[in-house]
Design a protein around this nucleic acid. Sequence first.
DNA 1: TCTGGGGTCCTAGGACCC
DNA 2: TCTGGGGTCCTAGGACCC
Length: 419
Amino acid sequence: MIAIVDCNNFYASCERVFNPKLEGRPVVVLSNNDGCIIARSNEAKALGIEMAMPAFQIEPFLQKHHVAVFSSNYVLYGDLSERVMNTLATLVKEIEIYSIDEAFIDLSGYREDLTELGFRIRRKIKQWTGIPVSVGIAPSKTLAKVANKIAKKSGGVHLLADPESIRQALEKLPVKDIWGIGGQYSKFLKSYGILTALDLTRAKDAWIQKHMTLVGLRLVKELRGESCIELDTEPAPKKAIGTARSFGQMLSDFETIAEALANYAATCARKLRQQQSCANMLTVFLETHPFKEDLPQYFNSKVITLPVATNYTPEIVHYAKQGLKAIFKKGYQYKKTGVIVSGLVPEDQVQRNFFDEADRGKQRALMKVMDAINDTMGKDRVRLLAQGYDRKWKLRQERLTPCYTSRWEELLTIDVDKK
DNA sequence: TCTGGGGTCCTAGGACCC
DNA sequence: TCTGGGGTCCTAGGACCC
């Protein structure tokens, strides 16, 4: 048996942990740049606020219903996620951290009542971290996801084990709500009269594979109770790493965009070093604002093959800027730029060439010192001049809460009532 | 009339997830 | 005024090999 532990309305719950007044109130969290709604408390869902709605369009509605609105604070959410996962690790052995707010766990070999175990997990995580979670338990990952959906609406834990209860659950589940079925497939299936998960389990294997590839076939087998997607407790290193942001305002001059890009490139280089990889390739892209249809639109990208795989910040920044030069055109209002590094190899398996004159050992030593300083004294304490200081391109984050758990200056303070 | 058979590697595009 | 960001996997088709 497999379980999935999923934090309820994770980002909204994180905001509540340090602000209990929000309990019972509708809460939403916005995407970067305060753009779209990306998390909603149950109260906010009940008001009919949908996922991914642009915040500016429903601003009056949010005010009218006294919805608490927050900019996203990924430092806080990342830290609380780690606490949740660490707490879970005290209760079970095999854990796959699937996303910032979800983990699969392997329950084979557990003798105790699984529903009871689910409730123990729920209680302990709530007590230790303040985050409410739901637990779905079933014979496959896909069915565990189904069970979790039911758990969210019932008591927080749901077990799907016997064939009849599985059948009943699948009968009520529209295909679009199955893990792995998105908009395209649900439209396609509907055109064939396949409306529920139960309908889908009755389709022929060959037909499914023909129209939905091997991925689809695996999914259907999982719905039938045959576990096909293994627990992945040690995720492989990433194959590509990207950093991109929309600007807080439109930008048209090369220098400011290059400064923003240098920061994204530096972030990519840092992430490469964190997973001990070097990149052979670098892609830069630049785009205008797709929603401003009256303005001239432009999108372009440039792929650069690096002479030798690297994770050295100055080198990544240098080639990123070179890529930007190749695609930048005057006269447009730009909204977003980004860097993707790919062709990743382990940093101790880099293929050199005869013409490479860089002192790679020295570069690595320098990055080690820089990272050590920035880890202890604050992000970007030491940085390249190219990363700049003005930050004209910075994100809009008008309703940002403190990093309660990761910055000394921002610890929660409590006013004691003096009598 | 009549032109083989068995592979590998790479990439773009399409689907999906959170 | 105002619309996010970061990933994965699979397949078909092209280029190449012997």
